[in-house]
Amino acid sequence: MFEPEYTILPDYAPLYPQLPFHYKNYRKLSVYCRGERAAIERFLPKQFEYAGDVFEIFVLTNPEISGLTPYSEGGIVIPCKYRDIQGGYMAYEYVDTDESLCAGREIWGYPKKLADVTFEENEGKVQGRLVRKGKTIIDISVDLDDTQVDQPNLFPRLIVKRIPKADVYGVDVDQVILNEFENVVIHSRETGSAQANWEYSSFDPLAELGPVEVLGGVFVVADYTLNYGKVLTR
Rank of each mutant, 00 (worst) to 15 (best):
V173K: 13
A51F: 05
V185Q: 14
Q127D: 03
E182K: 15
E208G: 03
I78R: 12
P70N: 03
E41F: 03
V185R: 15
Y89M: 07
L101Y: 13
D139V: 04
I138F: 01
Y23I: 07
E41P: 08
E121C: 06
M1F: 10
Y50K: 05
Y50R: 04
K161G: 11
Q151C: 03
Y71I: 06
R42H: 11
N122R: 11
L130V: 13
K165A: 14
Y50C: 00
E180P: 02
I137P: 09
Y224A: 15
T118I: 14
R157V: 02
A166P: 10
V173E: 11
A51W: 02
G35I: 10
E120C: 00
A196Q: 06
I159E: 13
V168I: 00
K81D: 03
R234Y: 04
V212R: 08
A103C: 04
A196P: 01
P111C: 10
G88F: 07
I137T: 00
P152T: 13
Q148G: 00
Y228N: 14
L209W: 02
K112V: 10
V149R: 07
E208K: 14
A51T: 10
L215I: 00
S202I: 09
K161W: 08
I65Y: 09
E93S: 15
P211K: 01
D98F: 15
K113W: 11
Y94F: 15
G75D: 12
P10Q: 05
V231N: 07
P70V: 01
G74H: 10
G210S: 06
P164W: 04
I76W: 09
D167E: 03
V176L: 02
G109L: 05
G170W: 07
E190H: 10
R157Y: 15
P79A: 08
E123Q: 05
V131C: 11
R37P: 05
G35C: 06
L68V: 04
T69C: 07
D223S: 12
K81W: 05
G74K: 12
S30Y: 04
A38T: 05
Y200M: 07
D116G: 01
T136Q: 11
P205H: 12
V54I: 15
L29E: 07
A91Q: 05
M90T: 12
R83C: 08
Q86P: 01
T97Q: 11
V142W: 08
E106P: 12
T191P: 03
A194V: 00
D150I: 12
V221S: 09
R234H: 09
F219H: 15
C33S: 02
V231I: 15
L44I: 10
N122D: 14
V77A: 04
C33P: 01
V214H: 07
P164L: 08
Q151F: 01
I186F: 13
G210L: 13
T69Y: 11
N62D: 12
E36M: 09
L206P: 05
D150N: 11
T97G: 09
Q148C: 00
Y200C: 03
E49A: 14
F21S: 03
I8N: 02
L232C: 10
Q47Y: 10
Y228P: 00
E120A: 10
I159N: 02
E208M: 08
V54K: 09
